[in-house]
Amino acid sequence: MKACIFDLDGTLTNTLESMTYSVNLTLKEMGLSQITKDQCRMFVGNGARVLIEESLKVSGDPKASRIEEGMKIYGRIFDQNCIYHVTLYEGIPEMLKALKDRGIHLAVLSNKPDRQTVKVVKEIFGDNIFDYAQGQKDGIRRKPEPDGVWYLMEQMQVSKEECLYIGDSEVDAATGKNAGLKTIGVLWGFRDRKTLETAGADHLIERPEELLQFV
């Protein structure tokens, strides 16, 4: 194995608090009711637009008719607060170091907007861990489409057989499958075992260090 591509939210970092906080500041500015952390957990994974759309529907705008306004406000607020209370899951730094020590290329692919993805990765991990960090940007379809995975593989010059995809949601399981990669589902993130099994992840792991057996 020569490379690993990781999802970000719920896989490397616990960003639930930062996203719930930013969504609720957005809803407050729009005069709508707040969402809970559990609701936010279920709404994340498909990008910012789906997150805001689903949040609007449960907060007093059932048809999400104010989605454009919501996206504009959320974009501004989340850019200021994307590091708010973001923490690393236990064992992640050690696992990443072990992979680096083995000469494995590391990349992040998130459905979070590209600017904030790069910002979070740089802030939390510094410049020396990941070869590439990429979020949602124009011209590359968001996960579960395989475009982002293939683009990163091209940058790292690795084949499908030489690369693992690692994530915590049904979107990630589908992404890895669509890209033709062996896909590892992590059980410490935003979804449960049943969801990941149903979605077709090749393997499930309970602790970060378990990933090392696949490389």
Rank of each mutant, 00 (worst) to 15 (best):
2 K>R: 15
6 F>Q: 04
8 L>Y: 03
9 D>T: 00
13 T>R: 00
13 T>I: 10
15 T>E: 06
16 L>H: 00
16 L>A: 04
17 E>L: 07
18 S>Y: 04
18 S>R: 01
24 N>Q: 01
26 T>N: 06
27 L>T: 05
30 M>R: 04
31 G>Y: 07
32 L>A: 04
33 S>M: 10
38 D>A: 08
41 R>V: 00
44 V>G: 05
45 G>W: 08
45 G>T: 10
47 G>C: 09
47 G>E: 14
51 L>E: 00
51 L>G: 05
53 E>P: 00
56 L>A: 10
56 L>I: 04
60 G>R: 00
61 D>Y: 11
63 K>Y: 14
64 A>D: 09
64 A>L: 09
69 E>P: 02
71 M>V: 02
74 Y>A: 03
77 I>H: 05
80 Q>C: 06
82 C>L: 09
85 H>Q: 15
96 L>Y: 09
99 L>F: 11
99 L>H: 11
99 L>R: 10
106 L>P: 02
107 A>G: 14
108 V>I: 14
111 N>C: 12
114 D>S: 06
120 V>L: 11
124 I>F: 06
127 D>K: 12
128 N>F: 05
135 G>D: 04
139 G>Q: 08
142 R>T: 11
142 R>G: 12
142 R>N: 12
147 D>P: 08
149 V>W: 09
154 E>H: 12
156 M>E: 06
159 S>G: 13
159 S>M: 05
160 K>L: 11
161 E>D: 15
162 E>D: 15
164 L>N: 05
165 Y>F: 15
167 G>Q: 06
173 A>V: 01
175 T>C: 12
176 G>W: 01
177 K>D: 02
181 L>N: 03
182 K>D: 02
184 I>A: 08
186 V>R: 13
190 F>I: 02
193 R>K: 14
196 L>P: 00
196 L>R: 01
202 D>N: 14
203 H>D: 14
204 L>M: 06
208 P>F: 10
208 P>W: 11
209 E>Y: 15
209 E>I: 11
209 E>R: 14
210 E>L: 08
